[in-house]
Design a binder for these strands. Structure first.
Lengths: 218, 218
DNA sequence: CCAGTACTTCTTGTATACAAAACTATTGAC
DNA sequence: GTCAATAGTTTTGTATACAAGAAGTACTGG
């Protein structure tokens, strides 16, 4: 029963941090949250510890747990690492990907294209996620897949914002094609480069991200 | 006082897992460890949770915490990710490394060379670690540095074994030179490739690792 | 003699109570 | 009037007590 409860609470707390109920710097009041969730402080503290380990909150001894949203610099750094992790997935996947996985990628891309045509951001977002998950899986390295998924999840709220900018979906879509082509050709270097470019926050994507951060702060 | 105690216990527990006091599959008995550390179960459970998050133990609900040493496959996978992370550090460091950091790398290499000449494994190990930490830092990406350091720490016990094989120190040393040369030339691709090769477990290194795992199992 | 079930015991998970530290507010002094 | 110090309150950290589930054992039936 323990893991279950602490896990559920951790998940819900995570959600509360992501959806903005708690802003950067807010203190997570143990007693308040405990009675809100209808549990005692013990499982709630365990949940908070988990959030701390995943970096969402900072634990200051004898002071409490404070929500710690990444600032611009940290965010850029995280996207840079995400780009390198995805590049690594691509490099390995180019050697190891199966025909069925390739077919699944092409399928996801078809649905992505349809979403672009319809201007359907939500569907695009979902299929895009599926696309990347398949790439992670196709690296043939379960540990890498796990690490990539972890960071992907962490960056979720910030990635979503990016898609709202004009023309981003179409560009992203074109990059997906390049990635699939490289993977199909078993070209490790090309696949790695394509994925790195696709994920990296550079040029106008950088300015878009900064702009969205500024908006979120208000 | 809390973080302090739980942190200390987590560290000591980690040590106990690393130095073989606990083997793969052993259950971490809360009450036994609690009285051994002279604390109650509460802080000890928090420490165990941390180990679980870092992957050293597996938490099975209502069953307890079990030491989870990586098997051969998982180990290979982790080294593969380490190689990619270090390659990423190299790629970025080639563009961002400072002259003082380059000098520090050369200094570490000098001490490494001396250790090779003396056949001093311990000193080599220490300087080798310093070398890699400088590379991480020189990536100019604090998040990447943190992630690389985390995995590096996790693989520590397995890396150490590797150095004991004949000729490994000399070969590793030569690779260090190649890395520094690439970084000094600001050649991102060369630096990435050199670091990837240096860390990757391939060829005879693979067989060495398998052999050492077999030894450890007995 | 073996297998299945019930019971006992041990262990985990959760709540609560207690201690220590930090923050706050109030009072007094300069 | 402002600053500082102290007392009180709030909150974290830890211990302990209690509840529930799992595992092992013993007993009974086939």
């Amino acid at each position: 029963m323990e893991q279950r409860r602490a896990d559920r609470i951790a998940e819900q707390l995570e959600e509360l941090v992501f959806d903005g109920t708690f802003s950067d710097g807010d203190r997570l009041d143990e007693v308040r949250l405990a009675e809100q969730f209808g549990v005692s402080r013990t499982p709630l503290r365990e949940a908070i510890q988990r959030l701390a380990l995943s970096g969402l909150v900072e634990l200051i001894p004898r002071r409490g747990a404070f929500v710690r949203q990444p600032g611009p610099v940290e965010l850029i750094e995280m996207f840079e690492v995400m780009a390198e992790l995805e590049a690594a997935c691509g490099r390995l996947a180019a050697m190891r990907i199966t025909d069925t996985a390739l077919a699944a990628l092409r399928d996801a891309n078809t649905l992505c294209q349809r979403a672009v045509d319809d201007g359907d951001t939500d569907t695009y977002y979902a299929e895009n996620e599926r696309f990347h998950k398949i790439v992670y899986r196709s690296s043939g390295n379960a540990f890498l897949e796990q690490e990539a998924t972890r960071l992907h999840k962490r960056l979720k709220p910030f990635r979503r914002v990016q898609l709202r900018f004009r023309g981003r979906m179409a560009q992203s879509m074109a990059e997906h094609e390049t990635i699939v082509t490289a993977l199909a050709a078993a070209d490790s270097e090309a696949a790695a480069a394509a994925l790195r470019t696709h994920v990296a926050v550079q040029g106008e994507k950088f300015h878009n991200l900064m702009a969205s951060l500024r908006d979120a702060a208000e």
